[in-house]
Amino acid sequence: MHELSLCRSIFTIADRAREGRPVEIIHLQVGQLRQVVPRTLEYCWGLVTEQTELHGSRLDIDHIEVRLRCEACSATMPVADSLVLACSACGSGDVTVTQGEEFMLTSIDLGGRGDGQVPPARGRHGARSRS
């Protein structure tokens, strides 16, 4: 939905950081509470970079799960996919989200062939989970 405008922001940041050099991979941290659909983001990245010097670069998305700290009992915990933001230990709804709202461009990998060709996917890259 809003992935297109997000890709425009990513483009602006990456284009500034690369200082004219070719880019192969843009590394992002995306928290689970950010309503970003990775495949849509990757699709929009292709659209936004078309006919630019970033064409052929790809996004590497590091998913960050949601973690809470309970203000009532001080427990810390991950949140299940249902995203119920309540303490799983004591049931209190007075919780602080300590992780899972990230939306950051962490780094870029320079290189690639700079000829607009998409490099082949590599094992460690592409969407993955992190806890």
């Binding site: 990456a14 939306f103 780094s107 990998d109």
Partner: peptide
Amino acid sequence: DHSGYDTGPQRVSVLEHIFGEN
């Protein structure tokens, strides 16, 4: 270099919030 290309990637740290401009 795990890429099979001649030169390995050079990583540039950026650490910018994507919503920063907004």
